[in-house]
Design a protein around this nucleic acid. Sequence first.
DNA 1: AGCGCTTCCGTAAGCGCTTGCGTACTCTAT
DNA 2: ATAGAGTACGCAAGCGCTTACGGAAGCGCT
Lengths: 351, 351
Amino acid sequence: MPKPGPGLRLIDVAQRAGVSLATASRALAGREGVSEEVANRVRRVSAELGYVANPYARTLAGGSSSTVGLIVHQVDDPYFSEIAGGVIQLAGEQGLLVQICHSGRDPEHELRQIRNLIAQRVGIIIVAGSGYGDPRMEAEARTVLAGYQHAGGRVAVIGRHALGADAVLPDNEAGGRALGTHLLDLGHRRIALVSGTPELNTVIDRMAGVAAALRSAGLSLDDMPVVHTDFVREGGRIATEKILAEHPDVTAIIALNDAMAMGVLAVLRERGIPVPERMSVVGFDDVSVAGDLAPSLTTIRLPMTDMGRMALELALKPTASRPRRRATGQQLIIRDSTGPAPASRSTAHGS
Amino acid sequence: MPKPGPGLRLIDVAQRAGVSLATASRALAGREGVSEEVANRVRRVSAELGYVANPYARTLAGGSSSTVGLIVHQVDDPYFSEIAGGVIQLAGEQGLLVQICHSGRDPEHELRQIRNLIAQRVGIIIVAGSGYGDPRMEAEARTVLAGYQHAGGRVAVIGRHALGADAVLPDNEAGGRALGTHLLDLGHRRIALVSGTPELNTVIDRMAGVAAALRSAGLSLDDMPVVHTDFVREGGRIATEKILAEHPDVTAIIALNDAMAMGVLAVLRERGIPVPERMSVVGFDDVSVAGDLAPSLTTIRLPMTDMGRMALELALKPTASRPRRRATGQQLIIRDSTGPAPASRSTAHGS
DNA sequence: AGCGCTTCCGTAAGCGCTTGCGTACTCTAT
DNA sequence: ATAGAGTACGCAAGCGCTTACGGAAGCGCT
């Protein structure tokens, strides 16, 4: 295994500074019991020599590990890559290392990754991505994480509650409501919902927001076509084909994330259905390409990068007596994929 | 710091299997000097107990570290996130952990990250992303990595040569040539190049390909407008505005990566310039959204995910006597952003 | 001067693992 | 049988660090 360039050890620093190993360790760790003078000398020598502690030795000996484990569904999903970007950014500033694992949207695999991270003795675990419906899995994850936290580990989650940890919560419901309201304001009355699997909390929350908006307009989600498929681009495609086939009267489609919206737009384009003239489409997340799609996508902006930073910030603070929650806010970004409902046979007449 | 749930140590496994610590270690490491029978027993017990070695202890004791350090310019750039996805995927299969750092396209910062990774004693370092023009930095990086490899570290790079390590090389030149040829075949003769900073090797190589294509048609890159800006979306915007202002006769734009192409398309859309009727646009990389843009983008497909996997594969093999190189291949993906050159005043008449 | 107290620092015991070396045993060749 | 070689395993020495613990000063107090 690689040794550091000069093979520099703490004891070298100690000797050079004329102190014992223990004193050097204390000085660099900033612990008390060392006079300012000596501490400064050690720090100076350490810096001169370019000493970097061996994290393996340090952690093994009981110092806490300075690496943070980040679990995402999939890094090459823009939603997660932006979150990861935020985490890595802040971690870099703090001199922490980030270990990334995929959960692949599989609760069992996610649990395995969490266990793995714990076994690897990372000091902080950040779990990004929606929770799952399966209560057994969630409970199990909760237990494992509780044990970890009890042993001194810090954890923060993004976009899921009920894990007994500090959480960054995107405002899914408000976003859903904003989306629904926007379409209603444009006169749409037959609105289809392209949804991910109802196993995901995120999906539930966003749907709830949409439902609330419909309710305030005297409508109900129960009367609208709702298609549950995979929470990814391909799911959006499949759902759209189904909607087109079974509900020709629909004038707007709400996709519960941008990835699905991209699938929706793709099918619409292939079929030559003009957006937004014949069909309005909205997404959710505002991934960075949303503005470059064909047509540019009306969606809910979530500050993904900040969410990553916030999560790590939370984890960096000492544990609170009870889990903290941080809402992220959201913002409706209106672009070209939405427009007034086309004049149609039944209810709507435009606003 | 967090202790593992059951605080399970190798010695527990050893006792349970009725062997010594040393034997257990050897059995699990698959080293010889242990009978098949005993080895199997140890492995079985270990699995039953759910034992996971403490990587800190393991590494400290001289076993090589099982974490791989991955340096990318920026994870929330689709090019890199897809590469990272590949690395993480394979790493997961191999039971390795991946640490990601940003270099932020800054050679100095990249060097710092490399040093950091080495100090952290990762066993493998993968550097993704183009090399830089600055020979001093490259030499320095080369030296540092050489020392690391000499000490037993493994390194693989993606998309850069001259770092004295195994390399995965996207076929930038062939891709550039394919792009150029494609546009020439469509009858374009006034072709602008939207390029990243010439500091990046990737930029140089892709340009060389384009130049070669032009040469075979009796043209020269020297006669074409070439704008060097940042190798990102915004750079594409800036370059396009400049080209539009200064070279109104251009009928096609080659952006040297998809991110820039997105910026190009954005400006064209804002100006109401129809693509491909009045202006053809091509990109490079084929990031996953390329097909969903407005219009869908003709580009060169690079197998980013595979490139990530390949890099890790190379690093996993024992060192070769001299650096290996693996070409990735490339493929021209023709979509809607390119079309025949519009009839114009001077040279071209369509094919 | 002698007592306790605090402050500063060194000694040494591990953290959990790998690995060189030595020992006990088995097998083949003489 | 018996040396020699080979195989299977245990012992114990670290890897570089943190952190009890204890000793040696220095302080104010009676």
